[in-house]
């Protein structure tokens, strides 16, 4: 599925958060969005997912939707957003309950998601009994259960430690190797952007505008290889430079205010 964002502007009361965003995500493309804190990344994602109404401009989607897709645009959350009173499997069942599915299909979707995320043995556990990484895997399994066409990820690994983050990045890579799910991936972490994204969108400090769109030429599967490192280092340098400049200016504005 393609995502077309055009002339998007958003204001909370009189705080302009996003200003004139034009963006197109190709079918199956993974776009990382980085930018200083408070520049409107989560807002952009919320608008793209239809849970925040934009002040002006439009967001449209078009294109292919996988078979059996129940929720074309699906979120994966930073805080996992699991119901603490439901077991792992019932958390996944939650997003299937309101669809007319046979009991067998319901079970099949839950089981497939759980098995793919290595959670099958933990299906009866409550979220409080799981580590952060496992909780986010439940979040991913829940998203997979509805067979999305597009994933919106809001700092999905920020609440996790570095090792767990590595493991989950591998999970995402595996996921995107199998499914050509378009994704908008908000992060603060350049490693994640460089490992996972096809392109990186750098937003300016608030009001968020697109500072630059950087394409990572190396294909995702080859980024661990030595031959890719020179290019990645170059991209990292460029992104870091852009981010630093924006963050410093944002800090200076706060200091002046």
């Amino acid at each position: 599925m393609r995502l077309l964002v055009s002339e998007l502007t958003h204001r909370y009361e009189d705080l302009t958060v996003l200003d004139g965003i034009d963006l197109t995500l190709a079918e199956g493309e993974i776009l990382a969005v980085i930018g200083p804190s408070g520049c409107g990344k989560s807002t952009l994602l919320g608008i793209a997912g239809g849970i925040v109404a934009p002040t002006a401009g439009s967001v449209r989607v078009e294109g292919a939707v996988p078979d059996g897709c129940l929720n074309p645009i699906t979120f994966i959350f930073q805080d996992f957003a699991l119901l603490p009173w439901r077991t792992v499997e019932d958390n996944i069942a939650l997003v299937l309950e309101h669809h007319r599915l046979s009991a067998a299909e319901r079970r099949e979707r839950t089981e497939t998601g759980l098995r793919r995320m290595g959670l099958w043995d933990f299906r009866k556990a409550l979220p409080k009994q799981l580590s952060g990484g496992m909780r986010q895997r439940v979040g991913i399994a829940r998203a997979l259960a509805v067979r999305p066409a597009m994933l919106l990820l809001d700092e999905p690994l920020s609440a996790l430690d570095a090792q767990t983050r590595e493991l989950l990045m591998d999970d995402f890579l595996g996921l995107w190797r199998r499914e050509k799910t378009t994704a908008l991936y908000v992060t603060h972490n350049l490693d994640e952007a460089l490992r996972l994204a096809d392109r990186v969108c750098v937003l300016s400090r608030r009001p968020g505008r697109i500072r630059e769109l950087v394409t990572i030429e190396e294909p995702r599967e080859r980024r661990q290889e030595p031959s890719a490192q020179a290019h990645l280092a170059e991209v990292r340098e460029r992104l870091w430079h852009l981010m630093k400049a924006e963050a410093q200016m944002a800090d200076r504005e706060i200091a002046r205010a």
Binding site: G49, G50, F75, A81, L83, L94, V95, E97, H98, R142
Partner: peptide, 10 residues
């Protein structure tokens, strides 16, 4: 949690 549920179309 309510946002999550809305985003899944509940």
């Amino acid at each position: 949690l309510i946002r999550m549920a809305q985003s899944f179309g509940l």
